[in-house]
Amino acid sequence: GGHPVTTQMVETVQNLAPNLHPEQIRYSLENTGSVEETVERYLRGDEFSFPP
């Protein structure tokens, strides 16, 4: 991942996926670069990993 992630982006995802840890959200956003894509992954039931 190398996309810039803002606190705003993390908070937006958190509102839609409250049971995800912020670190999981941030890591996913760094890989996708997209709030929409991260939320899609969540709704699909994809696994969210923590940063290594």
Rank of each mutant, 00 (worst) to 15 (best):
N15T: 12
R26Y: 10
T6Y: 06
E36H: 11
V13A: 06
S34H: 03
Q14N: 06
P4W: 14
P4Q: 14
P52Q: 08
V39T: 06
E40C: 15
S49I: 14
S49P: 15
M9D: 09
N31M: 15
Q8Y: 10
T12C: 13
V5Q: 02
D46Q: 08
E37G: 07
P4V: 15
M9T: 02
P51T: 04
P22K: 10
G2M: 13
D46M: 09
E37I: 13
G2P: 15
V13G: 00
L16D: 03
G2L: 14
L29E: 04
E11Q: 13
P4K: 15
H21D: 10
E11D: 11
V13C: 07
S34G: 04
V35Y: 03
E47Y: 12
L20K: 00
T7K: 14
L20A: 02
T32I: 03
N31E: 15
P52C: 09
E23L: 15
V35T: 06
E30M: 13
H3N: 11
Q8G: 10
V39D: 01
H3M: 10
S49T: 12
R26P: 02
T6E: 04
Y42W: 11
A17R: 02
E30Y: 09
E11N: 12
R41L: 07
E11R: 13
E47C: 13
P18C: 10
F48W: 01
M9E: 07
P51Y: 09
L20W: 02
R26V: 08
E47L: 11
Y42K: 01
P22R: 10
T38V: 07
E47S: 12
L43I: 10
T6P: 05
T6I: 06
D46G: 06
F48N: 01
E37D: 10
P52K: 08
V13F: 00
I25Y: 00
Q14Y: 06
N15F: 12
T32V: 03
S28Q: 05
S34M: 02
R41G: 06
I25Q: 01
V35H: 01
L29H: 02
G33Q: 07
P22G: 05
V10M: 14
F48P: 02
L16S: 07
D46L: 11
E23P: 03
A17V: 09
D46Y: 11
E11A: 12
P52H: 08
P22W: 11
H3F: 15
V5G: 02
E30W: 10
P52F: 07
L43T: 07
T38N: 00
P4H: 15
A17L: 13
S28A: 11
T32W: 05
T6D: 07
E36F: 11
P4E: 14
Q14E: 04
L29F: 00
R41H: 09
T7L: 14
F48E: 01
N31H: 14
Y27C: 09
I25E: 03
Y27Q: 09
P18V: 08
V35D: 01
H21W: 06
R41V: 03
T7R: 14
V39R: 03
R44Y: 04
G45M: 03
S49C: 14
M9V: 02
G2K: 15
S34N: 09
G33D: 03
Q14L: 12
T12L: 15
E30V: 08
V13N: 00
G1F: 12
R44L: 07
M9K: 01
H21S: 13
V39Y: 12
R26S: 06
V13E: 00
E36Y: 11
P51G: 08
P18M: 06
E37M: 11
P51R: 05
S49W: 10
F50Y: 12
N19A: 10
E30H: 07
L29G: 03
H21Y: 07
Y42A: 07
Y27R: 11
L16H: 09
V35N: 01
T6M: 06
G2Y: 14
Q8M: 11
T32M: 04
F50L: 06
D46N: 06
L29C: 05
E30A: 11
Y42D: 02
E40R: 15
R26N: 04
E36R: 11
P52T: 08
S49E: 15
R44G: 06
G2I: 14
T32L: 05
G45V: 00
Y27I: 10
T7Q: 15
L20Q: 01
R41K: 11
T32Y: 06
P4A: 14
T38S: 05
E30G: 07
Q8V: 11
M9P: 01
S49H: 13
I25M: 00
E40V: 11
N31C: 14
E36D: 11
L29M: 02
H3Q: 10
V13W: 00
H3S: 10
T7G: 09
F50V: 04
H21R: 10
T7D: 15
Q24A: 04
G45D: 04
S28H: 07
G33P: 02
E30R: 05
E40I: 13
R41W: 03
R44S: 08
E37T: 10
E11I: 14
V39M: 14
E40G: 09
V10N: 02
H3T: 10
V5N: 03
P18I: 09
P52V: 08
A17M: 08
S28F: 06
T38P: 00
T7C: 15
E37P: 00
N19M: 11
N19Q: 11
E23F: 08
Y27D: 07
Q24E: 05
S34E: 02
S49Y: 12
F48V: 03
M9W: 07
V10T: 05
L16W: 10
D46K: 05
N19C: 15
H3C: 14
S28N: 06
V5P: 06
V39H: 05
F50M: 07
L16C: 10
T38K: 00
E36M: 13
P51C: 04
P52N: 09
V5A: 05
I25F: 00
F50D: 04
M9H: 03
M9C: 09
E36K: 12
A17F: 15
G33W: 05
T12N: 10
T32P: 00
T38G: 01
V5R: 01
R44N: 10
G45P: 00
Q24V: 03
R44C: 07
E40F: 12
N31S: 14
E30L: 10
E47R: 08
Y27L: 12
N15R: 15
T7I: 15
V39Q: 03
P4S: 12
V10A: 04
L43Q: 09
R44K: 09
T32N: 06
N15E: 13
D46T: 05
R41I: 08
V5Y: 11
T6L: 06
L29I: 06
R41S: 10
R44E: 05
P22M: 09
H21G: 06
E37S: 08
T32S: 08
H21A: 10
T32H: 04
Q14H: 11
P51H: 04
D46W: 10
A17I: 13
E30K: 06
V13T: 04
G33S: 05
H21K: 10
P18Y: 04
E47K: 10
H21E: 07
S28E: 06
E40N: 14
E47V: 12
N31I: 15
T7E: 14
Q24Y: 02
Q24F: 01
T6W: 07
S49R: 12
E40M: 15
E23I: 09
Y27T: 08
T6K: 04
H3E: 10
F50K: 03
Y27A: 10
V10Q: 06
E11L: 12
E40P: 01
L29D: 04
L29R: 00
G45S: 02
Y27M: 11
